[in-house]
Design a protein around this nucleic acid. Structure first.
Length: 644
RNA sequence: GCCGUUGUAGCUCAGUGGUAGAGCACUUCCUUGGUAAGGAAGGGGUCACGAGUUCAACUCUCGUCAAUGGCUCCA
């Protein structure tokens, strides 16, 4: 008999050689029906693998992330099997599960494949599901593995096997399809009830752009059809919220070939929205002791040689600008920090001056590969809500905490409720990628980790994701429909103060080196506005939205009254316009609803006579009549509650 | 940058080797209508750009640019 310890701490006795499935069955039939795989002694296992010694066991279902992984990973095999049957001879790269679904990279040789072929592949997959064949795990030696794929002529798998240790290699077979795989897998494919192939794209073999590009097919599967339907609805909703579509429809921003790819042009409504965001942050920053500064859009090449950016990114930047006679070289500003270092350096600083916090909505320009540009989220010119804090080592953690407070305040105000913080540390095995001393790196990393703990942030730690000059803390938010975005960033930097030879005089009259914090709570205005559009679906909070109120006169006779309303509302700083077209009220309402204007004031005979306005709220129909003063109060209350 | 897809009116999109269409938007006129589309007429396109094939190219071929889905990259 062996002892199996379950997650709740209970211990059960079984015959040696019991399978995880049998354990599940002993607990309940329902669990046995839903269980997908198991974690045995911390390692993911197939359900039908026999357990021969005492072990801890966790059973995985669709409700576990790891359960979904197994489900999708098996689905990837299923898709490959279907594709091999339809396109004999194709070669397979890798086919992992991803956050939502899975993909398989395939060398289709001379076959041409397009999304028109998806139906055919899905049908074949369904056929295979119906056949319910088992998935069989088999341990093979490296030589056997190599021999199989040599015979099959799949050099991608052979390459993968070359990198594996002999004795750790397993094959999984379903039907006639055999794949190299660590596993685990479902015992058979029958739980895969809903299948959808999603998209097709090129992907380099092993992510190396010098190597062959394979065809990647993205797909997703579910145990229930309903779940697939829900997922497809979510994709549709995401499409509706796409900031590129809404940005165009709501006239917030545009792009022009003549201006250049990746260079956003802000239209009046978008510019006004952005300006309000900036003013909001400026006000917060003022309370936190920041000072606004302004720097030019270009800087002498020497500035970036001093900062180190030239050595690191010079080749990946826009080419330098040169003066015609003197031959001086300037770079378009890719970062604000070197300029801000010069602001720090312009006069001697005392420890009494610190911390110094210089803030700037600084527009920077970075060369991005043409294929990488995407709406407002990946552009070649963008404005960072940047600031640099210069402080003493002792002040570092407190300053870091204050920045976290600003970020959290912004998230709260803009209704981002679900966020995590990613702490990016350097890769200790790859130190040559980074600049700066070990001692400074350790100090900085500890300060971040501790600050995050003090502020009780929900954190994940990523090794090797640090910037080349220091560790950082990035905020990831989930929007209203559950997608993840990276927004604000806070970065500690011991490097630039060194390179710019920044110093302050301590109370002992000795010179010391300040520490620098880079931070951008929004990240960039472009990116943040994009995320805000998708988060709100274009229904911005009242205080931010470009048009707050539109007055809809029933007929021309009520225009005059409408104009007096405009004056009253504008006196209260409310952004208001009149729809004075000779259209029917229904039409005016429809248009205002489509423009997502929060409040419509319908005024006709009754309102003129009684000095009232009939209020209709976007998406909420008629709210009834009230006096103008009451309406103004109503708006102010709504804006107040957002800002407190 | 690489691979795939796409590019027709301000927007959304039909369309064909024989000289260009719809709906919305816009202009004018009629209509003055009470909570999601009143009616009529009209203007508007070098069919992304440049070459080539052809008697003839928006359509076919090649190239360029841009957008887009991925990959690689991201201070």
């Amino acid at each position: 008999m062996i002892q199996i310890t379950l997650p709740d701490g209970s211990v059960k006795q079984f015959q040696a050689g019991v399978t995880s499935y049998e354990v599940a069955l002993s607990i309940s039939e329902g669990l046995a029906r839903n269980v997908l795989a198991a974690v045995v002694n911390g390692e993911a296992w197939d359900l039908n693998r026999t357990i021969t010694h005492d072990a801890t066991l966790r059973l995985l279902t669709w409700n576990d992330t790891e359960g979904k992984d197994v489900f999708w990973h098996t689905s990837a095999h299923l898709m490959a099997e279907a594709i091999e049957l339809l396109y004999p001879g194709v070669k397979f790269g890798i086919g992992p599960s991803i956050e939502t679904g899975f993909y398989y990279d395939i060398d289709f040789l001379d076959y041409t494949i397009s999304s028109d072929d998806f139906q055919k592949i899905e049908d074949k997959m369904r056929e295979l599901v119906a056949s319910k064949h088992q998935i069989v795990r088999k341990e093979v030696s490296k030589a056997e593995a190599l021999e199989y794929f040599t015979r099959k002529g799949d050099e991608y798998k052979m390459e993968l096997i070359q990198d594996l240790e002999d004795g750790t290699i397993t094959f999984y077979q379903s039907g006639d399809f055999i794949d190299l795989c660590r596993g685990p897998h479902l015992p058979d494919v029958s739980p895969i009830k809903a299948i959808k192939l999603l998209s097709l794209a090129g992907a380099y073999w092993r992510g190396d752009e010098k190597r062959k590009q394979l065809t990647r097919i993205y797909a997703i599967t579910f145990p229930k059809k309903k779940e697939l339907d829900d997922y497809l609805l979510l994709l549709e909703e995401a499409k509706k919220r796409d900031h590129r579509k809404l940005g165009k429809e709501l006239e917030l921003f545009t792009f022009s070939q003549r201006v250049g790819a990746g260079l956003a042009i802000w239209l009046p409504k978008g510019a006004a929205l952005r300006e309000r965001l900036e003013n909001f942050l400026k006000k917060v920053q003022k309370e936190y002791g920041y000072q606004q500064v302004i720097c030019p859009h270009i800087g002498n090449v020497e500035l970036y040689k001093t900062s180190g950016h030239y050595q690191k990114y010079g080749q990946d930047s826009f080419r330098p600008i040169t003066t015609p006679q003197e031959g001086e070289e300037f770079f378009l500003k890719p970062m604000n920090c070197p300029h801000h270092c010069e602001i720090y350096a312009h006069k001697p600083r005392s420890y009494k001056d610190l911390p110094l916090r210089f803030a700037e909505f600084g527009t920077v320009y970075r060369y991005e590969q043409s294929g990488e540009l995407h709406g407002l989220t990946r552009v070649r010119g963008f404005t960072q809500d940047d600031a640099h804090i210069f402080c003493t080592s002792d002040q570092l953690e407190e300053e870091f905490c204050k920045v976290i407070d600003i970020v959290l305040y912004i998230f709260k105000t803009l209704d981002f409720k679900d966020y995590t913080a990613q702490i990016s540390l350097r890769d200790p095995n790859n130190k040559e990628k980074y600049i700066g001393s070990d001692e400074n790196w350790e100090k900085a990393e500890n300060a971040i980790i501790h600050a995050a703990k003090v502020r009780n942030l929900n954190t994940v730690v990523e090794i090797g994701e640090a910037a080349f000059y220091g560790p950082k803390l990035d905020f990831m938010v989930r929007d209203a429909i559950g997608r993840k975005w990276q927004l604000g960033t806070i970065q500690v930097d011991y490097n630039l103060p060194e390179r710019f030879d920044l110093e302050y005089i301590g109370n002992d009259n000795q010179k010391y080196r300040p520490v620098m914090i880079h931070r951008a709570p929004f990240g960039s205005m472009e990116r943040f506005v994009a995320v805000l559009i998708e988060h709100t679906g274009g229904n911005f909070p009242l205080w931010l939205t470009p048009d707050q109120v539109i007055i809809l006169p029933i007929s021309d006779k009520h225009l005059e009254y409408a104009q007096t309303l405009v004056k009253q509302l504008e006196k209260n700083d409310i952004r208001v316009s009149i729809d004075d077209r000779s259209e029917k009220t229904g039409k005016k309402i429809r248009d205002a609803e489509l423009k997502k204007i929060p409040y419509m004031l319908i005024v006709g005979e009754k309102e003129v006579n009684e000095k009232l306005v009939s209020v209709r709220k976007h998406g909420m129909k008629d709210l009834g009549a009230m006096s103008v003063d009451d309406f103004v109060l109503h708006l102010k209350n709504e804006m107040e509650s957002y800002l407190n």
